[in-house]
């Protein structure tokens, strides 16, 4: 009887140890709150050159960085990370994102959204996030794998379908 209990305890301890180790080894401890994003910005078909871009990512803290477009309206931001206690077991994750563009004395909200998964490139289902943006249009809403965005940009990604409104009531579910 005692032997069995000791064995159980040992198993339990091992499980705890190994569980801990697995987390420590596989998780580099960074959460991606804004994936690397690059692309081209135009206004009425013309490249938006030398515009100032201010990117903000926010989870536990606010992070901000800046870049400028080149002659061709091209810009690129590296990934933005946050370290927090959430790193060990990333789960309920909400990071808000914005990119503002300042061009010829005017401000445009290029991007605002909520990133719902901590993985890199969650905004584009794992692919690099490469966008085309038009400052003259109205922003569009897009939901990608639970993340939600309002943006002047488009990128190659399959949007989430709306909720199936035929599955709203319990009575709808009966065959």
């Amino acid at each position: 009887m005692i032997k069995k209990s000791v064995r159980l305890m040992l198993l339990f301890t091992l499980l705890l140890l190994f569980g801990g180790a697995a987390v420590a080894l596989t998780d580099i401890g960074k959460l991606c709150i804004f994936s690397a994003i690059s692309g081209v910005i135009t206004l009425n078909g013309q490249p938006v050159a030398h515009a100032r871009l201010i990117r903000t990512g926010e989870k536990e803290r606010t992070h901000q960085d800046e870049t400028t477009t080149d002659e061709n309206g091209y810009f690129a931001f590296p990934p933005m990370y946050e370290r927090s206690i959430a790193k060990f077991l990333p789960m309920e994750f909400v990071a808000s994102q914005t990119i503002m563009v300042e061009y010829k004395g005017k401000k445009y909200k290029l991007w605002s959204g909520v990133k719902w998964k901590p993985e890199e490139n969650a905004e584009s289902r794992g692919k690099p996030l490469v966008v085309q943006c038009q400052l003259e249009i109205d922003d569009k809403y897009i939901s990608v794998d639970g993340s939600k965005f309002f943006t002047l940009c488009t990128w190659d990604v399959e949007p989430d379908p709306p909720f199936d409104m035929n599955k709203v009531f319990e009575s709808d579910m009966e065959d």
């Binding site: 719902w116 809403y141 939600k148 309002f150 599955k167 009531f169 319990e170 709808d172």
Partner: peptide, 29 residues
């Protein structure tokens, strides 16, 4: 009663309406 799937999706969505987003954007979503 509504389905578990619908209730769960709504419970998730209330996390998405974060402080930075306005009511207008929540409505659009």
């Amino acid at each position: 009663e509504i389905t578990p799937g619908f209730a769960a999706t709504l419970a998730r969505d209330v996390y998405k309406i974060v402080d930075s987003s306005s009511l207008a954007s929540a409505i659009r979503q």
